[in-house]
Structures are given as structure tokens and as C-alpha cells.
Design a protein around this nucleic acid. Structure first.
Lengths: 142, 142
DNA sequence: TAAATTTGGGACTTAATTGTCTTAATTTTT
DNA sequence: AAAAATTAAGACAATTAAGTCCCAAATTTA
């Protein structure tokens, strides 16, 4: 459904949403330890997100990654789109090039609505999911 | 969602469901050409399915792969389970080891019901999907 | 200004998936 | 019985995804 990379990225972004702000930046290493991930690999992912302005960063001591208030209003799915691209969630489940309602694959009508709902659920802003973690309704690790 | 391998396998099985029976076996090469797939690779997939008795095969001239009437009543998801295993469709979307309703990940309640529905849709028998192709309601290629 | 710390970028390595090839076993036809 | 056709099995190759490493650039602190 999602690649390992974008799973990591979503976790890391939600961690930042919960724990960081422009006054409180967090180093890649700290995030990696918190969500139990190889730190150099996570760094690459965070850099990709930073390059695309999903998250912010600053260098040097006291530097790190963080989310601005406005970044909290980004749909979570954008994280996935940047790391995985969109085709993974949009292409035909059976891999047919021209699957559509005009020329559906055999599972199209069973599955296509579910895929669409899935994307719609991830359209919710980062803040919505982060709130659940803050409330103790949801967890980021273990 | 599904690996390329299991997409191929599902396509091939549905092709067999539509075109084969115990009197009319189909060679791997013919299936590969029909659904536009590398034939040696498809052979491996068909062999895996045959070993697990999802499809039938016989060797020699006039040999090939086929589906018995009773095999048509197999849930389509079994094809996926054999090629991909079950974890791909069951594990937490964010990759958390212990994600559950007691300890949900932030997207659990948004996404878990959709995954369950997805599996349920694929529980339909092979014959159900094959009928759609026979009726011209669905297509297996291009 | 120099040292320390952190992100940025790219080359490199490793692992998993996808795809190919060769040979053996089985069955049919002649 | 021999030849031809097909699946079965497993080793091998290529591609993609995952993960590591090194050095440069920027920033802070002393």
C-alpha cells in the first residue's frame, strides 16, 4: 500500500507535528531514535520533504527539522505523494494500463471505491492525526 | 497494494477461469502472450499456484494449465495469499508492529476498515470475477 | 576566527524483487 | 522405443528499493 520509505516519512512527520515548532527544532538523530529507524536513511527522507517544503529545517547547532503552524494544515497524503509518487495509490489494482469505468478490470468496481476512500482519508491535515497522538488516542511507535 | 507478481498471477488465473477447463488446457506461453507478460516468469507463478492446488496442470504435448469446476469456487484472495503472503494486506499501514484497536496508529481508524473491506471483496470466488469477463462487463488486458 | 554541530547532496552498498536460463521429469505421438 | 512438447525446479542475472557513508555548506558558540 505504502512503501517502507513513506511509512517512515509519515511517522517522522507526525512526530514532528507533535513535538516540534519553529522554536523547538528536532535533530534527525533524535527522531530516528524515537521512532526506531536508521538515522541516515531517515535523514534522506526528511531532506526530500524539506526540499519540497512539507517540513522546515535549519542547519548548525540548535538546528534540526520542524513544522510551522501552517505546515500542520498540509494534507497527510502529500507526504506519501512526495516519497512514493501518486501512481502507487492511483493505478489499477491488477496493473492494467487502461483500467477505467469504461474499460474496467474484473476487480475494478469492488476495489476502486475503496482506493478512493483511502486517498480521501489521507487528505486530512497532518494536524488531525497529530491531535490523536497528543490526546493519547493514537500511538506513533511500538 | 499487490505486488507485480500477484497482479500477474490474478490476471493469469482469471484468464484460465475464462478460457480453460479440464478438457481444454492452456500452455504458459499462450497465457503470457494473451496477457502480455514475460513467459518464463509467468511459468514460475503458475507453478507456485499449481503446487498449492489453486490451479491444475499436466505435462507433455496437449498439456498445460487449467481450472477445474471446483477450483472456480476458490476465493480470489487465495491467489494473492500464495504469491504475496497475507501480511502485505494485513499489517499496519504505517508499519507499526503492535497496531490494534487497543493501541492504534494515527491512521488506524481511518484506514483499517477499508483494508478489511478490500480483503472481503477479494474473498469472492474466482468464478464471480471470471463471469464479468465472459459477460463483457470487465476486461483482462489493455 | 576557529571549532563544533547540524542539514544537504551524492556516491556507494546491500537486500529484495523481478525476470531469465538450463536441465530434468512427464506425457503424447509416431 | 524414440522424438517432441510441455511443466517442474532451481541456479543465475538484472533491476529496483532500502540503507550507509563521506564530504560540503551553513550556523552557532566560544
Amino acid at each position: 500500500m505504502l512503501s517502507s520509505s513513506s511509512k517512515y516519512a509519515v511517522n517522522a512527520v507526525l512526530y514532528l507535528a507533535v513535538h516540534s515548532n519553529d522554536k523547538n527544532k528536532i535533530r534527525a538523530k533524535e527522531i530516528a531514535e524515537a521512532i526506531k529507524l536508521p538515522s541516515p536513511f531517515l535523514s534522506k527522507l526528511l531532506q526530500s520533504l524539506s526540499r519540497e517544503n512539507i517540513i522546515s529545517s535549519s542547519k548548525g547547532p540548535t538546528g534540526g527539522f520542524y513544522l510551522t503552524k501552517q505546515a500542520l494544515n498540509t494534507p497527510l497524503i502529500e507526504v506519501v505523494n512526495i516519497i512514493d509518487g501518486t501512481s502507487r495509490l492511483e493505478d489499477c489494482v491488477l496493473g492494467l494500463k487502461k483500467c477505467s469505468s469504461e474499460q474496467p478490470c474484473p476487480v475494478h468496481y469492488s476495489v476502486q471505491p475503496l482506493k478512493q476512500k483511502f486517498r480521501k482519508e489521507l487528505q486530512e491535515n497532518i494536524s488531525v492525526f497529530a491531535e490523536k497522538v497528543k490526546n493519547g488516542e493514537a500511538y506513533l511507535f511500538v
